[in-house]
Amino acid sequence: MTQAVAPADAILVADDIIVRFDTAEGPITAVDNISFKVRPGEFLSIIGPSGCGKSTLFNVLGGLLENYQGTVNVAGETIAGPHKSIGMVFQEESTFPWRTVTDNVAFPLELVGMPKSKRIDRARHFIKLVGLDGFDNRYPGELSGGMRQRVSLARTLASEPKILLMDEPFAALDEQTRLLLGDKVLQIQQELKQTTLLITHNITEAVQMSDRILVMTYRPGKVKRIFDIDLPRPRTSEIVGSETFGRYVAQIWNDLREEANRGMLDEEKYALEHERAL
């Protein structure tokens, strides 16, 4: 299904990642022996059913989770904790409500001590890039959910990370906004040749944007298959209507359906056991 990525070509290498959690029901393995590599400039999506450990993997890659086995290597450096080469965009709304759009986007530039006038110019560049020019002096409270996510994206891009790591950034948005924002992310990714990792449970979103898609199994999360998406670039959401697109969606859904079913049965079983315990 996919061609192996030689380590020398890879900007990110995840090797044998295992994450275990202690719960009231005993220890569980959330992520089990996950290994993959990402090429520079590549768009890789990681897809799986709810509860497969996608967000756990996001935290491992972003350096927010410390207790795991295996290694994450970024541009030849093994990471321990958050790394300046990785910029994270979170699923939840994460703008700072006390800062204007410009001040939000300029946040990482402020941290590196960039002079105020320069960082405002730089922030405006990224605000324009995400299509929010004219909203520079607004506060997040005055913006829609989609606009706020674009502010978060611009803020992360302003730190000029080598790898953009996104955890279901459009999950809380409606389908139309999601497709349009997908276009925006694609446009930016193509313009900046930005290496991007997208964690998602949305097949359409993954196929629309990715060069490769890694499908995860339901608990414990393992790599089930990696798909190469051979669709022409530059892409927009118009590609959603093409026959090849539909074929990819069907193939991935075939792989994912079994895992989603397992997840659903597991949740039902847990709910019944919980009810009996009560």
Binding site: P82, I86, E92, S94, F96
Partner: peptide
Amino acid sequence: TRKVLINVGRSFKL
């Protein structure tokens, strides 16, 4: 303070 805001700070190595 929302955890996600703390995580934003951590991701920027504050």
